[in-house]
């Protein structure tokens, strides 16, 4: 195959791939008139769902960053027996079908669950509460941050850490003042990817947290609820989620470029 034919074939394939991936999003945004979409967003139920999505995803990302960053530090800097197993377990939710994640959470934290009974005795009943949404989001989104943070920490120059310790900084101070700032780009990317995953969560939330307006019905669940009911409302919510997902992706891209630029 000559170089020209190959170039033409790959460009055509790329064009087809881009068209295929972009078409549904374009359709989503053009199926209804912008005026009707804006109108649908005026509905209090839609705003309630969007607000709930933003709040639960926000809380989930804070938890993921606070807990996931030190965890990623350990995984990146320590070599211990069973590390491969731990890494696999941490990354598993990344590839679990959401329905499986929801079922797993239910049989773990539900009233008949592995630890749910003990939690219930302690007065903590998760399923069908807003807190269950946060738990589901943390479960599915945490691996996105941990993976990214682990890679960012692993890529740090060991000499940097060495210098910090030689200068007398404690390990905690080295982590907080040297490693975290140096890996900030990767950490932010991880947080943004976790936020995107959390905003899009559907299956695990429905199975574990249920669907009640204002309590557990996030934007994704409201889209499914409105699908059988009011397509414009479903499209309007979808457009907002497309917009926020795109914004998060652009953030990730800009951070990546800034890091590449030095």
């Amino acid at each position: 195959m000559s170089g020209r034919v190959f170039a033409a074939a790959t460009v055509a394939t790329a064009g087809a791939a881009v068209a295929f991936l972009a078409l549904p999003v374009v359709a989503l945004l053009t199926h209804s008139s912008p005026a009707r979409l804006v109108d649908a967003l005026g509905d209090p139920a839609a705003r309630e769902a969007l607000w709930l999505s933003a709040a639960t995803a926000g809380i989930a990302v804070v938890i993921v960053v606070l807990v996931g960053t030190p965890a990623a530090w350990v995984l990146a800097t320590r070599r211990f027996r069973g590390r491969a197993l731990v890494v696999t377990l941490v990354e598993l939710p990344l590839v679990l079908p959401p329905a499986v994640a929801g079922l797993a959470l239910l049989v773990a934290f539900g009233p008949h669950g592995l630890v749910g009974g003990a939690l219930g005795d302690a007065g903590v009943v998760l399923p069908l509460h807003t807190s269950a949404v946060v738990v589901a989001l943390v479960f599915v989104a945490a691996p996105f941050h941990i993976r990214q943070a682990q890679a960012a920490f692993a890529a740090l120059d060991p000499a940097l850490m060495e210098a910090s310790r030689t200068l007398g900084a404690s390990p905690a101070r080295t982590f907080a003042r040297v490693a975290v700032p140096a890996a900030a780009g990767g950490l932010t990317t991880g947080a943004a990817l976790a936020a995107a995953r959390a905003l899009g969560e559907f299956g695990a939330t429905l199975m574990f947290a249920g669907s009640l307006p204002g309590v557990t019905r996030t934007a994704s669940l409201a889209i499914y609820d409105q699908f059988g009911n009011d397509l414009d409302a479903a499209l309007a919510l979808s457009a907002v989620l497309v917009g926020s997902a795109a914004a998060l992706l652009v953030t990730v891209r800009l951070l990546g470029e800034r890091r590449a630029a030095g």
Binding site: L106, V107, G110, P111, H112, P127, L128, L206, M207, G210, S211, L212, P213, V215, T216, R217, Y224, D225, G228
Partner: peptide, 21 residues
Amino acid sequence: DVRTQEPDVKGIVGKLVAGAV
């Protein structure tokens, strides 16, 4: 006291069997 409005009847049965409601 309604704690969830499920998209179909299987969702309600699932929540009942799991003891969530």
